[in-house]
């Protein structure tokens, strides 16, 4: 261990530093949670919208497609800065966390819309035909037949995305949100050894993301083959 690190430990392990890091971790977690929940709901809605037929919804379908293709191609940082300056220009005095939350939601919605779209597309068209000839409505077909079969295709990439996303929220620090990575840097600037500060950050990221992995695995088992339940 580098010189002085051992001596720093008592000074590092204070309630103050712990609270600072945990608070930052809670922002990271909150940003990811908002992004994931909004993403699965709004992204799911866009994916479903894109499966509709008929002229009436064609403009909305076009918008949905445009949105998904656009926001998956813009770097996260750019989206974040766009939201930041848009709210500034609009003259809104928005909390930094809200700005971060909007940005992550915009991005996760686009990614999850694509993940759900692929899941819906994985269900064989003959399932739609069988439902149609028995007078299932579009929504009934989705709810009773298609979505139950799509879960097993949606979950692995969705959880992969959530885990990646948890790390990517670090970029929110660019507009001043004190999330976990930023907090680590701050402590580092206060003179603590990188081993300690970023070691603590690493542990906290792991503590948040590993349970997510386990949850994902559990859900996958639950939905994969309903017959083996």
């Amino acid at each position: 261990m580098p010189h002085g690190v051992i001596e720093q430990i008592p000074r590092f392990l204070t309630w103050y530093n712990a609270a600072f890091l945990l608070r930052a971790a809670s922002f990271t977690l909150a940003l990811s949670a908002v992004g994931s929940v909004v993403g699965i709901l709004a992204g799911g809605a866009i994916a479903v919208l894109r499966r509709t037929r008929g002229w009436a919804l064609a403009p909305l379908r076009g918008l949905g497609t445009l949105y998904v293709e656009l926001f998956r191609r813009i770097p996260f940082l750019v989206t974040l800065l766009l939201v930041f300056y848009a709210t500034q220009l609009g003259g809104y005095d928005m909390p930094l966390f809200a700005i971060g939350a909007i940005a992550v939601s915009l991005i996760s919605t686009a990614y999850l819309a694509e993940i759900v779209r692929a899941g819906l597309a994985s269900v064989h068209p003959n399932q739609w035909h069988s439902a149609a000839v028995a007078n299932f409505s579009f929504m009934q077909t989705l709810r009773l037949v298609v979505i139950p079969q799509a879960w097993s295709v949606v979950l692995p990439p969705a959880f992969g995305f959530f885990i990646m996303f948890l790390k990517d929220t670090a970029l929110a620090s660019q507009v001043g949100v004190v999330e976990l990575t930023y907090a680590g840097k701050t402590l580092n600037n206060r003179g603590f050894a990188p081993v300690l500060t970023f070691g603590a950050v690493l542990l906290l990221y792991f503590a948040m993301s590993y349970p997510l992995t386990l949850l994902g695995r559990r859900l996958e088992v639950l939905v994969a083959r309903p017959r083996h339940r």
């Binding site: 064989h124 003959n126 399932q127 069988s130 009773l144 079969q149 309903p226």
Partner: peptide, 9 residues
Amino acid sequence: FQQYNLFQN
């Protein structure tokens, strides 16, 4: 149908 098309779930 020829391919029976039962609901797989």
